[in-house]
Design a protein around this nucleic acid. Structure first.
Lengths: 165, 165
DNA sequence: TCTTCCACTGGGCAATCTGTACAGCCGCTC
DNA sequence: GAGCGGCTGTACAGATTGCCCAGTGGAAGA
């Protein structure tokens, strides 16, 4: 097995992240490689699942949901799948993970306001199988979700660790 | 103030999310509106910050980082900004929020493996100012990060709540 | 060492899309 | 009633895309 991505892949992803509007041709010019190469790399990256797509990045705050919170849920035994389905049906639940530790699930929720957050929480926890919930409101977001440093890291490691289990 | 998005905006975002590769012209065909309209809507959505861009969605797992964890950090008074800078410098820290509640910060981190997670955690917490850290490993991800239901909700509310404080 | 395979290059082609502009139409507000 | 903003339908030049091909160079395997 070979490394996930190489230096050119890394540069390509970085370039596309920083200037998403440019096309394949422009990429090839910036990266100083043939257009076919860029196309092939992109196809491979998508085929390997490294790049999932180029969907629009929607900002919940601009949609009228400026409040973000993280809720840790405790689930009663055996209710897991029902709870998942329930949470998946709540639009304000943006993300859900099952986790180790004192809680069982961690979900990210958004709301129109702190007051509105109460409504969302009520809806989230108003379901049999959820024993307890503790919510933490996100105040600031010093580091927005990012992957670029990781990409750079992975592209660098390529040289150091030709393969990785 | 008017509502964040209307029904057409919602349909446009949904369409682009589901099929990112299609262009403006194709959108106008699918939505049964003029191309200029789609173009104008897109420009406005981006200008208003509803859509941040169309960057590639990178999958950390495919990059060799299949392990995700959430770390809750407790910070000693007045060390906040230093800690932020420190965490921002760690590639494996994908996201960082300051939060209410027992902890002070919540960050999402990734690692090559459970064993490698130890290295990452050591690096994350190995900094003066971080008093205590508790980590929860993400096992499953029943609901991947999504915004579509929220977009649909917002586009619907447009009719019901013409304005919102 | 020789052969094969794979990736990259550089070129070309037709079809398509983009950016931009224009005039007309409609509903709303002043 | 005029003005304004948004949508439509159209037009055109220029750029881009998808696709194909032959040639080159390096790496792995025989």
């Amino acid at each position: 097995m070979h490394s996930p991505i190489d230096a050119l892949d890394g540069r390509l992803i970085t370039l596309l992240t920083e200037e998403p509007r440019i096309g394949v041709l422009e990429c090839s010019r910036r990266l100083q490689v043939a257009r076919g190469t860029v196309q092939a790399r992109l196809d491979r990256l998508q085929a390997r699942g490294v790049i999932n797509g180029f969907g629009p990045e929607v900002e919940p705050a601009a949609l009228g949901y400026p409040v973000t919170a993280f809720a840790t849920l405790e689930i009663s035994q055996g209710q897991g799948s029902d709870v998942r389905a329930h949470l998946a049906s709540v639009p304000e639940v943006l993300e859900l993970h099952t986790i180790t530790g004192q809680g069982d699930m961690l979900c990210r929720i958004v709301a129109h306001s702190n007051a509105d957050l109460q409504r969302v929480i009520d809806r989230v926890v108003g379901f049999d199988g959820i024993v307890r919930a503790s919510t933490a409101i996100a105040l600031e977001n010093p580091v927005r979700y990012r992957v670029l440093p990781l990409v750079a890291q992975a592209a660098t490691e390529e040289a150091e660790y030709p393969e990785r289990p």
